[in-house]
Design a protein around this nucleic acid. Structure first.
Length: 139
DNA sequence: GCCAACGTTGGC
DNA sequence: GCCAACGTTGGC
């Protein structure tokens, strides 16, 4: 199973809101970047993603699961971009900050470090495990 | 099809 | 608030 990382400005969509959205989850809409789209299209139901707060916080705060695979985003008039649905699974016991990620040699190749602007990123199996450990949760 | 100009993102 | 990095747009 592949793993992912989704970025959001907490001012526009926060982890707290994701938790309040509950079990049925919400659509992850608004992606307007082709690399991000490719990653969305590769997601499968049941796969998990880190939820990262950019700007305010700059830390991974929780884990979400994909509940619906890629489908068209009605807010995109061009019809080029789509979205998936996600639901909150659990928070990290301790958020993993960008500073901590940069300080961890095993995470030096993370997309978050090297291409911080990409809003939907793949995460390798090893990176997933390291961050779960740093976050104080079991994989 | 190239590339300069411009807008946006996001860390600092 | 600044600016580097990146993507997109549009003139040629």
């Amino acid at each position: 199973m592949a793993h992912w990382l989704l970025k959001s400005e907490p001012g526009s969509w926060s982890w707290q809101q994701q938790v309040e959205a509950g079990e049925k989850g919400t659509s992850w809409n608004g992606v307007r970047n082709h690399s991000a789209k490719q990653n969305l299209m590769a997601m499968k139901v049941g796969e998990e993603a880190f939820f990262y707060h950019s700007g305010e916080g700059k830390e991974i705060v929780g884990i979400v699961a994909i509940t619906k695979p890629y489908y068209p985003d009605p807010s995109d008039k061009t019809g080029v971009f789509g979205m998936v649905d996600v639901r909150a699974v659990r928070p990290l016991r301790t958020p993993v900050t960008l500073a901590a990620i940069k300080a961890e040699p095993r995470l030096k190749d993370m997309v978050l470090v090297n291409n911080s602007r990409l809003s939907v990123q793949p995460v390798t199996e090893d990176e997933w495990k390291v961050i779960c450990t740093m976050g104080g949760i079991s994989k």
